[in-house]
Write a protein that binds this DNA or RNA. Structure first.
Length: 491
RNA sequence: CGGGGUGUAGCGCAGCCCGGUUAGCGCACCUGGUUUGGGACCAGGGGGUCGCAGGUUCGAAUCCUGCCACCCCGACCA
């Protein structure tokens, strides 16, 4: 965008909004708290969906679809769950409109009040477990390994494109198992799938960990998560995987006969990632010139921009460009030849940089003469002039390099923003200064966590899996602690 | 729901304090021409219920009252 990434928090927000709009990803809708995902933005989401969906299927899951509406009574069956979501539910109370008697347009027909209100799903555990009750009788019916791609509604007070909108798109997996071990293994497996996707496709490094009781999903026994660090120093929860224990089985009476012929409650998991990942992608890799997309998720891998004066030149360039496009497409790459004569080359360069296209190939009269092209990579902005026939090997190699470089760059940034602190003073100083993840000892109590949150706005993002054990004292209470946990201010 | 801010052409804004021709600028758009290796230039042109409603006034984008919408910061959350 030609505008430096701001360091002040408010400015970063505005910069982010502008980028989302200018890169043609999404825009605010006139509908309260909602967002319109534009075709270019959606095509990135589709790439994410495709990759994730394949990973789910490779781990034995299948897709299904459950209702958008949840009868109010379902939601209240699991006590913690309803408490966690009650404050942000959209509720359907009527099913009909009518013309106003005073001619003031259309009004809700009071006659058409629903017997039982319907909740627009904020998540689907309740509808799904009420369905699973009918699906499970015997251990032979287990496990159920189902995923659904859906939209959900959470009536958040304050919204932010991709990170928190009233309606958003996501994927939610809901599985049912005969044993605790199997369910825990599933929970951990899906966390690994998420980490794998986010790191290898999105090129965003994450910390895998488990949430504290305070931050746990409403109704879960354990919530595992992946936490990423954004370039403004704030943390973003990129995905969660919950071990539900037998909580939902109990609430919805989902029992099965085990091999010994005894009735037992089913063990459950649920896991999800959302269009929030788009926000993570944007806030991890973007630079002063706009979006930077990792090749594995870029809707367009290579854009070819012709530079010409005369029609004959355009003809000759077109031939070359089409040949390149054909050859690279055959390798499975998505190539766009922007042959519009309504925009000048410089304009196109800026445009595709803004949209994050990983590789740009420019062909002009000079190249026609020399049999060369100019290849520019988006991540480093480096340009090189190469022979035409080198492209078939150079492009795949470059795309791989960009993918790796983006990950390494983000990881280096994150490492620099991980700080071990041993006093509360230092803790606050780091939060207000360089930001990022702060590793500190914590006494393990909710009270301490709450107080720290209240005083500093920092929360415990997670307790990392395979965390190093280390004797120490809580930075807040001074009580003994056996390990450091990850604190940060978060989105 | 609290605090701050903004609503004027598709986008970004000036004008408002101190009321007064026909409401202006940049980008974008249309026409013609010259251009094309990093967001071209010249000339001409089109596009406005000044967020909405009411009030004050001979006269309101400008002053007053009420309402609405959006943005940013908090509380809530993925």
């Amino acid at each position: 965008m030609g505008k430096a990434i701001p360091t002040r928090e408010e400015d970063y927000s505005e910069w982010y909004n502008e980028l989302v709009r200018k890169a043609d990803l999404a825009e605010h809708s006139a509908v309260r708290g909602c967002m319109v995902i534009k075709p270019y933005g959606f095509s990135i989401w589709e790439k994410m969906q495709a990759a994730l969906d394949k990973m789910f299927k490779d781990t034995g899951h299948t897709n299904a679809y459950f209702p958008l509406f949840i009868p109010k009574s379902y939601l209240s069956k699991e006590a913690d769950h309803v408490e966690g979501f009650a404050k942000e539910c959209a509720v359907v109370t009527h099913y009909r409109l009518k013309n106003d008697a005073d001619g003031k347009g259309v009004v809700v027909d009071p006659e058409a009040k629903l017997e039982e209100e319907l909740i627009v799903r904020p998540t689907s555990e309740t509808v799904i477990w009420s369905t699973y009750r009918n699906w499970v009788q015997s251990y032979r019916d287990l496990p159920i390994l189902v995923n659904q791609w859906a939209n959900i509604v959470r009536w958040e007070m304050r919204t932010r494109m991709f990170l928190r909108t009233a309606e958003f798109l996501w994927q939610e997996g809901h599985t049912a198992h005969a044993t605790k071990n199997e369910a825990v293994a599933e929970t951990r497996q899906m966390l690994d799938v998420y980490a794998d996707f986010v790191e290898n496709f999105m090129a965003v490094p994450v910390i895998k960990g488990v949430k504290t009781e305070n931050e746990r999903f409403a109704g879960a026994v354990d919530t595992y998560c992946i936490e990423a660090l954004m370039q403004d120093g704030k943390a973003l929860q990129a995905g969660t995987s919950h071990f539900l224990g037998q909580n939902f089985a109990k609430a919805f009476d989902v029992k099965f006969s085990n091999k010994e012929g005894k009735l037992d409650l089913v063990w459950g998991t649920s896991w999800g990632v959302s269009t929030r990942l788009m926000g993570a992608l944007i806030m991890t890799h973007s630079d002063d010139d706009g979006l930077v997309l990792p090749p594995k998720l870029a809707p367009i891998h290579v854009v070819i921009v012709p530079i010409f004066k005369k029609p004959e030149e355009f003809e000759a360039i077109s031939d070359k460009a089409e040949a390149i496009k054909k050859s690279l497409s055959a390798q499975g790459f998505s190539v766009k030849f922007d042959n519009r004569d309504t925009h000048k080359p410089g304009w196109k360069f800026a445009e595709y940089e803004l949209k994050g296209v990983p590789i740009r190939i420019a062909i002009g009269p000079r190249d026609l003469e020399n049999g060369t092209v100019e290849v520019a990579r988006r991540d480093t902005k480096e340009k090189q002039t190469v022979n035409l026939d080198a492209l078939d090997t150079l492009v795949p190699q470059l795309l791989e390099e960009i993918q790796t470089n983006l990950y390494e760059r983000a990881k280096k940034f994150r490492e620099e923003k991980m700080t071990k602190v041993d006093s509360y003073e230092q803790f606050k100083e780091v939060l207000d200064g360089k930001g990022g993840f702060v590793l500190a000892h914590w006494d393990g109590t909710n009270e301490t966590e709450d107080r720290i949150k209240e005083e500093t706005k920092a929360t415990i993002r997670c307790i990392p899996l395979d965390n190093e054990q280390e004797e120490g004292v809580c930075i807040y209470s001074g009580k003994p602690s056996k390990q450091r946990v990850v604190f940060a201010r978060a989105y």
